[in-house]
Design a protein around this nucleic acid. Structure first.
Length: 940
RNA sequence: GGGCGAGUAGCUCAGUUGGUUAGAGCGCCUGCCUUACACGCAGGAUGUCGGGGGUUCGAGUCCCUCCUCGCCCACCA
């Protein structure tokens, strides 16, 4: 018999995890091969997940931990099932985010990027990324990520950059990319334009200023004076002044008109007149436009075409000038068409300071009518949180509507499903109202736009390769200064990482379309929906069939974890303290479908207790097994004859089978059966917490709590069935480890490596590639065996409860009688087991004495009776019995009246009525027994 | 402003098409260091299923309404 010393008493993950991971890598089990994919003539179904690439400069946080654990669980599961499982890892060059980091570094050195110049700046960024970048991928290995690292991708690599150019040029050639002159979101801090999605709304309490514009006599003005015109008695308009409401008074300097609704009776007469911008001598027309809502503010709107998207539209309709009155950095300046609209004392002043100054000046001239608090949505830069400024400029746009069409259809017709279901509506709503995508950024870090200009012959060249000279005049060309939105490279990730634009790439053929996409809902629009569009646009096929959106990691106050708030948890701390498996199990078991995960950064012990405790439990089962079962080969369960198996053996094998079924149901179908999700399977599966719970329940509540205990009387006992118990126990644990491996890869692999196996077992070298357990249909015999053993467990619980209730010391001997209704022999046969499992020195089969006995009723109506023989105060038992009797009578009354209700008996399904009738009989019988007992014991 | 989701034990959440006495983990209480495990074992307590109304023989589950939170979208200056 081998010794317990094979496994240390305490599980030390730090000791084993790194070494095991290296062995997996060395064996190449995370590497997928194109030729093994069925699509490439192989014999395995491909199963592919493309990792949402973290920013190349990112450091692992719990959000990554959650996201990648989910992916790894799924990939490991499919790998064991036998799929050619591929998990493509990668990083994102993260345009704005990375550029901001370098700019901060420069600022610390007292420099700006202009000091370096573009080339040096980019070189420095490249060096920084090379030096520090990709650290997060190394960290992912620490949590067990089984990605195919040979395929690690980077959005700014030469290969992927080729795809970016190809995509741009193709879309341009199809007329889907164009240069647009319009108002876009501009971040004055990052000094770049942003897409609609990158300018995030936040509800804020600001102010609504009502400013009085003086009426001016129309230029053509030979008609009546304003005073005469207004003499009609309109009291809403201050004589000679027009009240205009605005939240951004500083944009006043860019006004080119005031607008009223054409049908607004109140102001109709103002149309065609002129007003004067306060503090200036600029006169602007008063125009009519349907855009104005007469019921909001004063009913008169100032029109600032260069600094408001709506005003821009109005300006276009009325062919108004569009003066730009701010510099790119958000200070006041006379830009395009502004002449000298901005007065000298405001030049170079920040927009918010300018707002204050203008307000003060208006107060002086009495042109500030009033100010009132105003809730409104303000857009902020998603990278630096600066208030975004609408700004007129030239940008490149992608025409989205044609791209959105197939993406919309895919979700509608079940080609792609989104889990949880509710996000599908959000997705559809967004795509139905999609707007063109601004893809140019005024940054240095990113893919330069592949467009060259020849100033000589006013030529624009869009090209897949670098252009050295004008193809018309041979003259000098200059490349567009702007770079592309980071998301313009990541939307290609599923295809570009597999070799696109080389459409004959083996990887593309073998692994595209991929299967699942796992990410957070925040980037549903940024990334997920655009990937779907790109998939159809460039491959004419969806990139994946399942989008799984998981929740956010939050602290106990439901605040999202973040480094800046200081409420984060470093996953690597958790790995060091409790092991990667503890982290993974905790995260998976605690996360419902799409629900947020709450963890307490101040109490890691408590937060990760579920995972840590369960890992320890597994470890100790392993220790028991090695100490008792030993390491010598076991018999194969397949060869065990039915008559060799005990009831407990049959029970645990049945429970194992049921558990496998539960796990499979929770995990669900890996892919749609026929290309499209059928309604009944569409939202099933990927219930990872249910999968974890089913496996945990089996290991802990079935295997450890019950079955393992029953083997203690068998294993190593001469002349008994030690070999049967060894075989069954080992088999059950082996399969439990297989089920748990996707969630807890390290500890399961460690234990599995030491498990004894049958001599001629066909076993893989690693649990990581061991076959996933296959369930079999449950037989009637199996079902019966399980019910019988459940009754034995019931009896044990009854004895334990009585012992606990009456505080009978563990050492005290108890006589136990079990009066069986239908299972005379069951309890007789298992008397020793009941004694053993109840950990009492009980003698089952003792005489049942009605008086002075504790009793308990089992599921099948059998009774467990323990004569208390003066051990305890009988009044206590009497009280208990009376309470029980009373409760039973109440419930029986309710049940009886229900059964007397004709509505119920006639309308409820027959089986329900039948069950209720049976219950009524059982309860009536029990009531009689109880009543007799009370009389006997307590004298009525 | 539009759309969506949630409110079940102290906390985090399960509760399938309406059908036994509403569950789990953590926490809590009691007793145990029982030779795999005190990161454990055994036993136990705790719910007006957000409020109100309705449909039904029967509602946590379906309908209406109200309240409270959260998310997404949005050009009301």
């Amino acid at each position: 018999m081998s010794t317990i010393h094979e496994l240390p008493a305490q599980y030390d993950p730090g000791e084993t995890e790194g070494a095991i991971y290296q062995r997996w890598i060395d064996a190449g089990i995370f590497s997928a091969e194109e030729k093994r994919s069925r699509r490439n003539g192989g014999d395995r179904d491909p199963f592919v997940i493309v990792m949402p690439p973290p920013n190349v400069t990112a450091v692992l946080h719990m959000g990554h931990g959650l996201n990648n654990t989910v992916q790894d669980v799924i990939v490991r599961w499919r790998r064991m099932v036998g799929d050619e499982a591929l998990w493509v890892p990668g990083t994102d060059h993260a345009g704005i985010a990375t550029q901001n980091i370098i700019e901060k570094q420069l600022a610390a050195e007292g420099k700006t990027k202009a000091d370096l110049g573009r080339e040096a700046f980019v070189a420095r960024t490249v060096a920084f990324v090379e030096e520090t970048g990709g650290e997060i991928l190394r960290q992912l290995k620490a949590i067990g990520a089984s990605a195919d690292w040979n395929r690690t991708a980077y959005t700014f690599s030469p290969e992927l950059s080729r795809g970016v150019r190809e995509a741009f040029v193709q879309l341009y050639e199809r007329g889907l990319i164009y240069r647009g002159h319009r108002v876009i979101h501009w971040c004055p801090r990052c000094m770049t334009s942003l897409s609609d999605e990158e300018a995030e709304h936040t509800e804020e309490l600001g102010s609504l200023y009502t400013i009085l514009y003086a009426l001016a006599i129309p230029a053509s003005g030979s008609r009546r004076t304003p005073a005469e015109q207004l003499a009609g008695g309109n009291t809403d308009v201050v004589f000679g002044h027009i009240p205009v409401a605005t939240t951004r008074p500083e944009t006043m300097l860019g006004d080119v008109a005031l607008a009223v609704h054409p049908e607004d009776e109140k102001f109709k007469k103002l149309i065609g007149m002129e007003a004067q911008i306060p503090l200036t001598d600029i006169k602007i027309p008063i125009i009519a436009d349907e855009y104005v809502d007469p019921t909001f503010g004063t009913g008169i709107v100032k029109i600032t075409p260069a600094h408001d998207a709506n005003d821009f539209e109005v300006g276009k309709r009325h062919k108004l000038p569009m003066p730009v009155i701010m510099a790119p950095n958000g200070t006041m300046a006379n830009g395009v068409d502004a002449d000298s609209r901005v007065p000298a004392d405001l030049l170079g002043i920040d927009r918010f300071e300018a707002r204050e100054r203008i307000i003060r000046a208006l107060e002086k001239t009495k042109q500030l009518d009033h100010v009132k608090p105003h809730h409104h949505a303000v857009r902020h830069c998603y990278r630096c949180d600066t208030v975004v400024e609408p700004r007129l400029s030239d940008q490149w746009f992608v025409k989205m509507e044609p791209l959105a069409k197939p993406a919309l259809k895919a979700v509608r017709d079940g080609t792609i499903r989104i889990l949880p279901e509710r996000w599908e509506a959000v997705y559809i709503n967004w795509l139905e109202n999609i707007r063109d995508w601004n893809i140019s950024r005024q940054l240095w870090w990113g893919h330069r736009i592949p467009v060259w200009y020849c100033d000589e012959c006013d030529q624009m060249i869009v090209s897949r390769t670098d252009v050295a000279a004008c193809d018309k005049c041979g003259g000098e060309v200059r490349q567009d200064e702007d770079v592309l939105d980071t998301w313009f490279s990541s939307w290609l990730f599923p295809i570009s990482t597999l070799g696109w634009p080389d459409t004959s790439a083996a990887a593309l053929a073998a692994f595209y379309p991929t299967d699942d996409l796992i990410t957070a809902p925040e980037i549903l629009f940024f990334w997920v929906s655009r990937m779907i569009m790109a998939g159809y646009a460039f491959m004419d096929a969806p990139p994946f069939h399942t989008v799984y959106l998981h929740g956010t990691v939050r602290d106990m106050n439901h605040v999202k974890m973040s480094k800046s708030l200081g409420n984060g948890i470093d996953p690597l701390d958790v790995v060091t303290k409790y092991g990667a498996d503890a982290l993974r199990y905790t995260v998976i078991s605690g996360m419902g479908m799409g629900a947020d995960l709450m963890l307490d950064p101040k109490d890691l012990d408590r937060s990760f207790a579920p995972g840590r405790n369960f890992a320890t439990k597994l470890w100790n089962i392993g220790r028991f097994l090695l100490a008792n079962v030993g390491s010598s080969p076991v018999r194969s369960v397949d060869e065990l004859r039915d008559n060799e198996l005990t009831l407990a053996d049959r029970w645990i094998l049945g429970r194992l089978n049921a558990t496998i079924l539960e796990c499979d149901v929770a995990l669900g179908p890996a892919r749609p059966e026929k290309g499209k999700w059928r309604p009944e399977e569409r939202y099933s599966g990927l219930r990872l917490s249910e999968f974890a719970e089913a496996a945990r329940r089996f290991v802990w509540n079935d295997l450890a709590d019950w079955y393992l205990e029953t083997t203690k009387a068998r294993i190593g006992v001469a002349g008994g069935d030690s070999e049967v118990a060894r075989a069954v126990l080992t088999h059950a644990f082996d399969y439990a480890l297989r089920l748990l491996h996707p969630i807890m890869p390290f500890i399961t692999e460690t234990l599995w490596q030491r498990l004894p196996f049958p001599v001629d077992a066909d076993r893989s070298e690693f649990l990581a590639v061991a076959p996933w357990p296959l369930p079999h249909p449950e037989s009637r015999e199996e079902r019966a065996a399980m019910t019988s053993f459940d009754l034995v467990c019931d009896a044990v619980r009854a004895v334990r409860q009585i012992r606990s209730d009456y505080a009978i010391p563990p050492g005290k001997s108890m006589d136990v009688a079990i009066q069986s209704r239908a299972h005379e022999s069951l309890f007789a046969d298992h008397a020793p087991l009941i004694g053993r499992l109840s950990r009492s020195d009980v003698k089952v089969g003792g005489q049942a004495t009605e008086a002075g006995a504790a009793h308990a009723v089992l599921a099948d109506g059998s009774e467990v009776i323990v004569p208390l023989g003066g051990l305890v105060d009988l009044t206590r038992e009497c009280g208990k019995l009376r309470a029980e009797l009373k409760q039973l009578e109440t419930q029986l009354d309710a049940l009886s009246s229900r059964l007397q209700n004709e509505g119920f008996t006639s309308r409820a399904p027959a089986n329900v009525v039948q069950a209720e009738r049976q219950k009524q009989q059982d309860w009536t019988k029990r009531r009689q027994q109880l009543a007799e007992k009370v009389t006997a014991l307590c004298g009525g």
